[in-house]
């Protein structure tokens, strides 16, 4: 064994808390600058994942967001244990992300327009949808319905939360049923798909926006890579399931770079408001 000289100089590296390497162009990005640029690479425009807090800061007017149902937590309906028990996973995810579950919901304004905003956080157990996500989104939709405010949901999720079994699957029907009421009441619902949006989330509310927007390069698809290779024994070609691919095949309306996202949402909301000729989104 070779002994190290404790006084010798360590090999130079970029300290990871200060710098991030862009996976697309390889550029080393200064973290603070990256944050200031809303986590978009200055050189190639690669969109890094944005957590819920950052997303709210990006979309909502300053200090306009007031969170609702912030304390809702999930119980463990199945007593699910994989490599560790589900409650431990939740606790770890809560400690890591600082949220109680994978979505934040609340009231906000976008360019002065009052809306109900829901933002998913991929950091929390892969943004998976269990009872809490389903319930919060359903309540958000129901509040939008009751107060006649448009609903904006920003998705980032691997799909339904397996640890809650079939109850998690039922959240697809639950959220979608609430959106059906919004639809019938002609209240706008804008769905924003971010990296990644897959599985049960895409197969429910995320696909059903009056307007569906996606961020550049975001992974968006029905089945995750592991499930596909498990089921059909082959891998999906590269570039499949990207935002641009969905745009080409007609399943998203626009691919919108992050800096333009807020004004684009505001534009659509304003247009719908004019069409209803009523500040309260007509009857």
């Amino acid at each position: 064994m070779r002994l190290r000289n404790p006084f010798g100089r360590k090999p130079k590296e970029f300290p990871s808390h200060l710098w991030t390497q862009c996976p697309m162009c390889g550029e080393m990005l200064f973290n603070k600058q990256l944050e200031r640029n809303n986590r978009v690479c200055q050189k190639c425009g690669h969109h890094f994942k944005l957590d819920a807090a950052g997303r709210i800061e990006l979309l909502a007017d300053p200090r306009s967001f007031s969170e609702t149902e912030a304390d809702m937590v999930s119980s463990d309906p199945l007593g699910f244990v994989d490599s560790k028990p589900y409650p431990e996973r939740i606790a770890a995810a809560q400690a890591k992300s600082g949220h109680k579950d994978a979505v934040l919901t609340g009231d906000a304004t976008i360019s002065g327009i009052p809306i109900v905003l829901a933002v998913m956080d991929f950091e929390f157990m892969g943004g998976s949808m269990g009872s809490v996500v389903g319930e919060k989104l359903t309540r958000a939709a129901e509040r939008a319905f009751a107060e006649r405010k448009p609903l904006v949901i920003v998705s980032a999720s691997g799909g339904a939360r397996m640890q809650e079994g079939t109850i998690a699957l039922m959240q697809l029907a639950k959220t979608v049923a609430a959106l059906a009421r919004l639809d019938e009441a002609r209240i706008p619902f804008i769905s924003v798909l971010t990296d990644p949006t897959t599985g049960g989330v895409l197969a429910s509310f995320a696909s059903l926006g009056d307007i569906v927007l996606a961020e550049p390069g975001a992974l968006i698809g029905f089945s995750g890579a592991r499930v596909t290779s498990e089921t059909i024994g082959e891998k999906l070609p590269k570039g499949f399931q990207r935002a641009e691919f969905l745009l080409e095949h007609g399943f998203v309306d626009q691919v919108v770079p992050r800096p333009q996202l807020k004004e684009r949402i505001a534009f659509f909301l304003n247009s719908f408001r004019i069409a209803g000729q009523d500040l309260r989104w007509s009857l």
Binding site: L172, V176, S207, L208, G221, S223, T231, I232, L236, Q241
Partner: peptide, 28 residues
């Protein structure tokens, strides 16, 4: 069903959107 088909053609033709629309229509 074991599940909706997860292959590339299904992705191309919008498996998720088809399922979401079907669920939504059934709820109402």
């Amino acid at each position: 069903t074991p599940g909706a088909y997860p292959g590339p053609e299904a992705e191309e033709r919008g498996q998720a959107e088809a399922i979401a629309s079907s669920i939504q229509l059934m709820t109402r």
